[in-house]
Design a protein around this nucleic acid. Structure first.
Lengths: 238, 238
DNA sequence: TAAGCTCACTTGTTATAACAAGTTGATTGC
DNA sequence: GCAATCAACTTGTTATAACAAGTGAGCTTA
């Protein structure tokens, strides 16, 4: 009935973290120290540390140690939707930048074709961007843009954010369908976002429509759970 | 430069799952089979399986095997906010029920006191509920209700949902401030929600106000990432 | 002094080994 | 035939062992 050793140890450390014994950024005891403190093998000590990492409470660096993760989140207002990311960031005093990872025409996958109302495997432009907040990786954005706009604005879009660029050229986004969900980091995402495999990530999936009700783009912003949250203030239903 | 063995193996399995070699509910090869197939030790085979589990792609049962997890989500509309959960569920053909875990007066923690605009450590009613969708655990709701309402409706609230109960007695919720974020399952939550430690969970945190602008309750709905998502359809900013 | 090397310490990966505990189906005993 | 037992499978926990690889401090050498 008693929980496994590694759980007992990680729960004890978790309580110490929450009680402030170890503050954000502090180094936790090394695996060797845990082995001696709790009289367990390295496997068990490692498992305990792995539990904390999987709970997002700590992060391990080879050669350095295991450190308590800070938790300071950027808030996004959904009341005024996620179209002018840079301004939202600036308002919260965050230096925002992005790095263009991919920009190329591809055949539309099925879900994208459905969202954009085009034939499957039609040509669309795929753009992948890495968003940085104060220099640190915060989110990956994957956008599928309808072909003619992608071709037309290709050079601009590698340097500027999508919504402002479109708006500047007479294609304002009028309507946005979005879904917020949550997923786990796969191998690629864990590399880009500098989180361990399986870490919790928020997904903001959206389809944007121009003023004539035509779908213009479909994309996902996949962000680190410890750095992002979404807020919404609203009146309830009648 | 090559990734670790356990990553190679779990990535291979992931691709097979995504390609449909293993469908939702299918059993994956046992640890022993993986040992032989890839000529690795059990530790490495276990690590590969652990990677899939941590990514939410599979779930392991002792004595039975490892199975591909199904992904069918219930969608919540935020356009009409999360106040009548039962109707939302019914509309999507889900049998909803809840189990009352805790209902008792407690001293308000600091964040709750701030949200409710009362003095720290004032008395409030704490209610914890386990939401079930088609019988399976889907979310845990933790609500702090202002003292007089908690006392007044205590018997009712153990059997009925909060918002409808309040509305029926002349206390409709007029306004809702909410935040959506994402967290990892700790030991307690992993037990209630039947997910592995560290699994991704969605958190819907809300403060509800009555028609006279007074805060009435503050709570969080913590739901399984593989069973919940939130949707929002809206016009963009001018 | 400054550059470079070495060493001690850290976490990461992997192997072998054993026992615990849950599940399932076959066998045995009544 | 039916029930109880057992054997063979599964994953879970834990120990010991070794080497790889990144970090940083201190020493050595030019």
């Amino acid at each position: 009935m008693s929980p496994p050793l590694h759980i007992s140890i990680s729960e004890k450390l978790r309580h110490q973290i929450e009680a402030g014994v170890y503050a954000a950024g502090d180094r936790l005891p090394s695996e060797h120290q845990l082995m001696e403190t709790f009289s367990v093998s390295r496997i068990t000590a490692r498992q305990a540390v792995a539990n904390l990492v999987s709970q997002g409470l700590a992060i391990a660096y080879r050669g350095k140690g295991v450190f308590v993760t800070p938790q300071k989140k950027v808030t996004y207002s959904l009341s005024s939707p996620l179209v002018f990311l840079e301004q939202d960031m600036a308002r919260q005093g965050i230096a925002f930048s992005f790095e263009n990872l991919v920009f190329e025409p591809v055949a539309a996958p099925r879900d994208v074709a459905v969202a954009l109302g085009i034939a499957k495997a039609s040509s669309v432009y795929l753009q992948k961007k890495l968003f940085r907040m104060d220099g640190a990786a915060g989110a990956v954005d994957v956008t599928y843009l309808i072909a003619d706009l992608g071709e037309r604005f290709a050079p601009l879009l590698e340097q500027q954010m999508t919504f402002p660029t479109l708006a500047e050229h007479g294609i304002p986004i009028d309507c946005l369908d979005s879904v917020i969900e949550c997923t786990h980091a796969d191998y690629d995402l864990s590399g880009y976002l500098e989180v361990p495999l399986g870490h919790a990530l928020m997904v903001y999936r959206y389809t944007a429509y121009s003023s004539d009700r035509q779908p213009v783009l479909h994309g996902s912003t996949i962000s680190r759970a410890d750095r992002f949250c979404y807020s919404l203030s609203t009146r309830a239903r009648a």
